[in-house]
Write a protein that binds this DNA or RNA. Structure first.
Lengths: 262, 262
DNA sequence: CGTCTTTTTGAATACTGTCAATTTAAGTGG
DNA sequence: CCACTTAAATTGACAGTATTCAAAAAGACG
């Protein structure tokens, strides 16, 4: 739990505003090797030994940039790759029958996307970049070939999928039994924890998603999200300036989730 | 989609009331083979060819009875088996911090349980029989060994896990964007569809779970579940007698879900 | 610098939850 | 087999929370 937290410069968000939009289809592809990747302890190779990671290297995953607002894959498209986030943030979402969007997750560096496509051979959700991002495309069929040769490799893939199931379990719990404050607290705590694991500050960060996207994810309206942020600020739990968040009282956030008195 | 629906006798529920409670620990074990199982087209072997199913047979899964109210596995226990339901209904649930129960799913014949345990090596939820049941215990390690020899076998297991992810996606959507009537309608439609696939009536069935359990699953209180049943009855959509349900207007149920106007 | 999007806030409404009482069914033991 | 006890389900009245509708403020972008 006591991972070294290399306090990353948060101001960088403002100092170097990413050139959004533009070069949407600029498919600047590169090859990458897991063994030399700075994310190797977070991502797919986590839990593998050296010779296993070398095998992964032989697959030569394709690296690609995805600009803010661009779609990596779309619901219904043929499933061929799973994707690992190298940098930046994605949302995954489904389109409801009436055309509205339902956000089903947010993904950051080292996390895998697209595992829900294995079931039907086509993607069950869409992935959209919330800022300029970089990803690794991992051919699912190649991964399966490797898994057939090595039982641990196979286990790693299965564990990734199972982890996804557990993640959704906890989200369901959240949606099913928490009120607005508890939901937002749970969301912020989760985000804080993931940022910390990645070497960023756990107490001060910049949200990459809109109030509407948070609301969709948490099952509440954007106005309620906004009001709840304001309430937390008034209670002295947070300092909120649009998307810039500063956690003043982490314990109280945690207690709000633990209590879950509803 | 047009599966033969061998209308099973529903009255059987009342004619042969199962002797609940009692013989909780009577571990009457038997060996089973997938190739001769009547659930082979629904369950694990679905999508495999004959020689592959034969390999499954070599594992000789253990069959076991679990009496109504008994626990098959508990949250936190060591994960060794995944389980296939042979007959009867299970619920899976998590215990919240304050001791309350959160139902995360209902499982019937041919469905797999326990896949959420792969991630941590221990079960992430508990499985409890809602009536007298029978299950197959599938040693996960043996299954992995088979998967290493055969790529299709491996794919079958992955697909099962992915299906679980997709299933939870849709539940999240439901919890996040539907009101009480839409939730219950979605629940009943799903149940109806699964019963139909198993050869039972799609329009008349007996609920194996309490209002409280339905409520926990759907993220609403038991009183609201009860009220919503009553509302559907008044609208002429359902005929409700405690746990016995008769669907009078399937289309209107379906429309309630499709609209999702909230 | 004007336009468009995002966010905040207010007021009224609608929905679900809470508390409580009653009915019905089911299980227990004489 | 019947009276008793317990659990499950229904229903009403009221309270509380989140949604809806609307308007204004603050940024972002070209």
């Amino acid at each position: 739990m006591s991972t070294a937290t290399l306090q990353a410069p948060l101001r960088a968000f403002k100092i170097t505003p990413v050139p959004a939009a533009a070069r949407a289809t600029s498919v600047s592809t590169l090859q990458t090797q897991c063994s030399s990747c700075h994310l190797r302890d977070l991502c797919l190779p986590c839990g593998m030994n050296a010779p296993e990671v070398e095998r992964l290297d032989s697959l030569m995953f394709t690296r690609r940039r995805v600009a803010a607002g661009q779609t990596l894959y779309r619901e219904g498209e043929k499933f061929q790759y799973i994707y690992a986030v190298r940098s930046g943030t994605f949302k995954s979402s489904l389109t409801l029958a009436d055309g509205r969007e339902q956000v089903s997750g947010f993904h950051m560096a080292g996390e895998l996307m697209g595992l829900d496509g294995v079931a039907q051979g086509k993607h069950a959700s869409s992935a959209i970049a919330l800022e300029d991002t970089e990803i690794c495309a991992i051919p699912y069929s190649h991964l399966n070939e490797l898994a057939m040769q090595n039982s641990n490799m196979q286990h790693v893939v299965s564990r990734m999928m199972s982890r996804e199931i557990v993640r959704e379990h906890s989200l369901m719990m959240l949606l099913g039994s928490m009120n607005a404050e508890e939901r937002l607290a749970a969301f912020l705590l989760n985000l804080s924890q993931r940022l910390k694991t990645r070497g960023y500050s756990a107490s001060e960060f910049h949200l990459r998603m809109s109030r509407a996207e948070i609301g969709s994810y948490l099952g509440m309206k954007l106005e309620t999200v906004s009001r709840t942020f304001s309430a937390f600020q008034q209670q002295g739990v947070l300092e909120v300036d649009k998307r810039h968040i500063r956690v003043l009282d982490l314990d109280r956030l945690a207690r709000a989730v633990e209590m879950r008195v509803h």
